[in-house]
Design a protein around this nucleic acid. Structure first.
Lengths: 223, 223
DNA sequence: GCGTTCAAGACCTCCGACGTATCAGGTCAT
DNA sequence: ATGACCTGATACGTCGGAGGTCTTGAACGC
């Protein structure tokens, strides 16, 4: 195994074992390189790799730190990876989202707070009845993010966030080509929100399913 | 933005735009560095980072290639990230798995082939009635992997693979401390398999839920 | 035809130097 | 005494070059 890969593993094990904890500062590059028995250049490759996936946070002039290691932060790297997938796998991502999102929405029905519901309502009100497609899609993302956040599961939240990215382009495309897509999306958002206010998990789940299924169906008929 | 980060973005965009396709070979380090306007050292940091998340495949003495970019391969990097999570978030991972796995099992009920079912049966038969805990957990992973593979969604498959990793230790621990865990697991596996053979999606979904919920319940009571 | 040898090509590792950003401490004016 | 400002130390950022190691494929000999 290459020395850089060894260094990656060693740093990883230092964190997993607890020798390095979230927020801790690593020894400076030259020292750490000497400790691990490799050159500073090779160590930098390891640090850069771990930095890309948000394990380490490198600050020029200051030092290198272990990130908070929050699921949210780490799964953020997922969206970077997901960006590489081509359109022919969008349907598979959407299928997974179709499983997760209704479940998350149902969970939110019992856990989301009144304040969060008010915030979602205000967000929909701000958008108005005839928003631009770009605004709608941005709002759509934010809306679902808010609901999933209300589920109380940060892993679920981050995962859906990562999965929603690649379908964004598709949704914009849909908004531009399908006449009633905008109005329908707004209606469904209101319906989901109403179900959440009623604390009706099954209704919320069903509306979320309908919401995603309509996108999926359109996408399937288009490709 | 640092030159290395720029290089990462440029290589990424070359792949996303289609200028570099899966399996393509990159120019050699010195040339690519010159093209992108940075030093070989800095370029190597970018390549190493993209290599960690399986975007690039670097072969000493040969060259650097774009990987197949299969969802399976890219999401494999997920397990690397998941390894960093501490035990207190295992429950959140398990909750996500509890959503996905029953859905995947239900999907498999209609899509899995007879050959795959036979292979799963043979696998359970091989294990016998009183396997070691390690063998059981390994078989457990393989069993669920086989079923999820039968769902026909490779994204779902890879995602569950990544999520199942962190709970593996917990399952071993459970097998060692809870008397009837082994027998119960075997019974539930047989029940899931029987439901799949019957092409009974709802039964398969329910058994999968039960299967995971029992682990979740035990874990919740233990922590 | 087949196995071996060898040289070219490409990545691997290291070194030393200099550039740049951050932070802490001291200085000085208010 | 307090605040802004300057400055040095520190640590990361970038670079160019020099060998080393591995893979590949062609040339060679059997």
């Amino acid at each position: 195994m290459a020395v850089t890969d060894e260094a990656i593993e060693k740093i990883k094990s230092m964190i997993v074992s607890g020798a390095l904890r979230p927020g801790d500062r690593l020894p400076k590059e030259s020292e750490l390189a000497a400790d691990l028995g490799l050159s500073r250049n090779s160590l930098r490759e390891a640090v850069r790799a771990l930095s890309l996936i948000r394990i380490l946070d490198v600050r020029q002039g200051d030092g290198t730190y272990v990130t908070s290691l929050d699921p949210q932060l780490l799964l953020e790297a997922l969206s970077f990876v997901v960006d590489f997938h081509r359109d022919d796998t969008v349907l598979e991502f959407l299928a997974v989202r179709r499983i997760l999102e209704p479940a998350a929405t149902a969970m939110a029905a019992s856990r989301i707070s009144e304040q969060q519901l008010d915030a979602l309502t205000a967000q929909l009100d701000r958008l108005g009845d005839t928003p631009s497609v770009e605004d709608l899609v941005a709002c759509d993302l934010e809306f679902h993010r808010g609901i999933v956040h209300g589920s109380g599961n940060s892993v679920l939240c981050s995962l859906l966030d990562g999965l929603s990215g690649p379908t964004t382009r598709a949704r914009i495309w849909r908004g531009l080509t399908q006449e009633d897509a905008v109005a329908r999306t707004l209606r469904e958002h209101r319906a989901i929100l109403a179900a959440l206010r009623d604390r009706d998990a099954e209704a919320a789940r069903s509306w979320a399913t309908v919401h995603i299924a309509s996108v999926e169906q359109w996408l399937r008929s288009t490709l």
